[in-house]
C-alpha cells in the first residue's frame, strides 16, 4: 500500500500493480488501485501538439459559436 495525493486529499492506495512507481510519480487510480504510471513526457507532448494545432489557419478560423453569461458586475 502507498499514499497517493489527489490534488490535496490523500488516500491509501494499493501499489502492487505498479512496482516501478516512485515517490513523486503520477498514477491513474481506480477503486483504490494504481493501474498505470503516467508518462509525463508523453502528457506534455500531447498538450504541445494540441497547442500547436491549427496555428496556421488560426487567423482565418471561423468565429467561435460560444455564448457566455453576461457578467453584471
Amino acid at each position: 500500500m502507498g499514499r497517493v495525493n489527489f490534488g490535496g486529499i490523500v488516500k491509501d492506495v494499493c501499489l502492487a500493480y505498479v512496482p516501478e512507481i516512485a515517490v513523486g510519480d503520477y498514477t491513474i487510480v481506480h477503486v483504490g488501485f494504481a493501474l498505470s504510471k503516467i508518462d509525463e513526457e508523453s502528457a506534455q507532448k500531447t498538450l504541445e501538439t494540441f497547442r500547436e494545432m491549427g496555428l496556421l489557419d488560426e487567423e482565418f478560423g471561423e468565429p467561435e459559436a460560444v455564448e457566455t453569461v453576461k457578467e453584471t458586475t
Binding site: 490534488g7 490535496g8 486529499i9
Partner: peptide, 15 residues
C-alpha cells in the same frame, strides 16, 4: 467556470 470550489473539494468529488 465561475463556480467557486476548493481544489481539494473538487479532487475529493472526482475521486
Amino acid at each position: 467556470s465561475q463556480l467557486p470550489v476548493r481544489p481539494e473539494v473538487q479532487a475529493a468529488c472526482e475521486l
